[in-house]
Amino acid sequence: MHRFANPARFQRLATAILPWSAGATVVLLVVGLYFSLFASPPDYQQGDTVRIMYIHVPAAWMSLFVYTNMAIAAACGLVWKHPLADLFAKAAAPVGAGFTAICLITGSLWGAPMWGTWWVWDARLTSVLILFFLYLGYMALVNAFDDPQRGMRAGNVLLLVGIVNVPIIKFSVEWWNTLHQPASVMRMDGPTVAAPMLVPLLIMAVAFTLYFVTVVLLRLRAEIVQRRIQTMRLTQAAE
């Protein structure tokens, strides 16, 4: 309870930011969708499937971006015991997992017409799949304790262990893949990204980032409300 002064300042900040981030998300999503669906040419090799890229690649970026942010927040939470840092990691996890799921599903939908199969044990797909498991593990751990504080603290340690492991997993999976994959089936380079494709890609990436900011601010708010409910229930029970 003594730490609630800080969340109060956060609430004011969130109230100031939210309308702008929400508005910008909507505008950029509309513009990004227009560019990715209408105002960009189909790829000369991949045809219109290249339009999946404008969802798939930003989602892949976000999946790593969110995890990195969560790990930074976890470090801040462990070192400075900043209550908002703990809450941030918890609030961001479902959003990050959502982006990772989008990346996996759209990757599969892109692979079906291009490689002729829904799933290949390609290095990138495989490491994103493992990242997805890391997200799920974190979410399960945070919610597994009766004391939410303890859950978030344990989650922070797991995030730091995870962020050390992400490069190792990435490297080992790539190594495993080059050893085992008969290097013929597919062109993994994807389309060469030309300027008309770069525009929708970047707009969508910014739109996804703003979406993330908006939803995390809302989730943080919900978390703070939950904590206040909890403390009120406790004090009421004590009275």
Partner: peptide
């Protein structure tokens, strides 16, 4: 028709929209 790839392009956008709107 998406150049014959409608069955792959639209579900991709649909799934992304579903997950993002659902989370929100």
């Amino acid at each position: 028709a998406m150049g014959g790839y409608a069955a792959f392009v639209w579900p991709s956008y649909g799934v992304a929209a579903l997950i993002m709107v659902g989370l929100l």
